[in-house]
Amino acid sequence: MERLIPSMHALHLPSETEAFGLAALEAMACGVPPVATRTGGLPDLITHGVDGFMEPVGDTDAQAGRLVELLTNTGLHSKMAAAARLSAETRFTTDLIIPKYEAYYRTVQDGTSKAYAVSK
């Protein structure tokens, strides 16, 4: 996937729902702007009009319109591709997220996690 995605100009993710949208994140890291649906966890990930687009579920006219924008407007594509990469690097890169898991592991191991305190 890491070899396929960078050769693309846009990702289309028209899902009814997504818990997070890992495919969109991987695409953004490769500078491939996503055209997705405004659903589930995708708004956590995509800033509409900045690093990707979100349109209503099932609205293929709107989704196609965004794809055409990205494929025909070179300036928009460059700007959005750079913003997508920046979002991945500054919000979702391994160097940021893995330490959060490590810190959480320590609280659970110590028995100090809030969930542990409540459930026991």
Binding site: P6, C30, R85, A88, F92, T93, I97
Partner: peptide, 12 residues
């Protein structure tokens, strides 16, 4: 804790 991506592996 959001999902993550390896930005060294996934790059433009």
């Amino acid at each position: 804790i959001h999902n993550f991506v390896n930005c060294e592996l996934y790059r433009p």
